[in-house]
């Protein structure tokens, strides 16, 4: 069995951006959901890296708990709340919901921007 390759948050985010413009992904109409999945994983993976550097062990807690603690350890409080909100939205988009359609391009753009800002913030700290 092939091991699960460990992609960095940056790689995942780049993949999310790529899926938006790839002709084959676009043609099949898979891009909105694919981008949402990749973006959410970029967010989770970024958080994971942040905790392993700053508060090892925190990454094993449930995501909700991690996000609750984030403002305490991350110096950008406002961004922490935005990340929290974005994760909820991404998580929502990655489950099937009654009557809901795929996310829109503009929703995805906002999510990618937020994750970008998060990774940048984490790098600086």
């Amino acid at each position: 069995m092939r091991p699960n390759p460990d992609y960095s948050a940056e790689q995942l985010l780049a993949a999310a951006r790529e899926v938006l413009v790839r002709a084959d992904a676009v043609k099949s109409g898979v891009w909105p959901r694919a981008a949402a999945h990749l973006c959410r994983q970029a967010l989770e993976s970024g958080l994971d890296e942040f905790w392993s550097r700053r508060v090892p062990g925190m990454q094993d807690l449930p995501l909700r708990a991690q996000l609750l603690c984030l403002p305490t350890f991350f110096n950008d409080t406002q961004l922490s709340y935005t990340i929290s909100y974005t994760w909820a939205a991404l998580s929502n988009a990655c489950h099937h919901h009654v009557y809901e359609l795929a996310p829109t391009a503009s929703e995805i753009a906002v999510w990618i921007k937020t994750v970008e800002a998060m990774l940048e913030g984490f790098r600086r700290q």
């Binding site: 390759p5 992904a25 959901r33 694919a34 999945h37 990749l38």
Partner: peptide, 14 residues
């Protein structure tokens, strides 16, 4: 043609 990262990371979610 699809990069592996996309397949790996998107397919299980879908």
């Amino acid at each position: 043609e699809i990069p592996q990262i996309i397949v790996d990371r998107v397919v299980p979610g879908l």
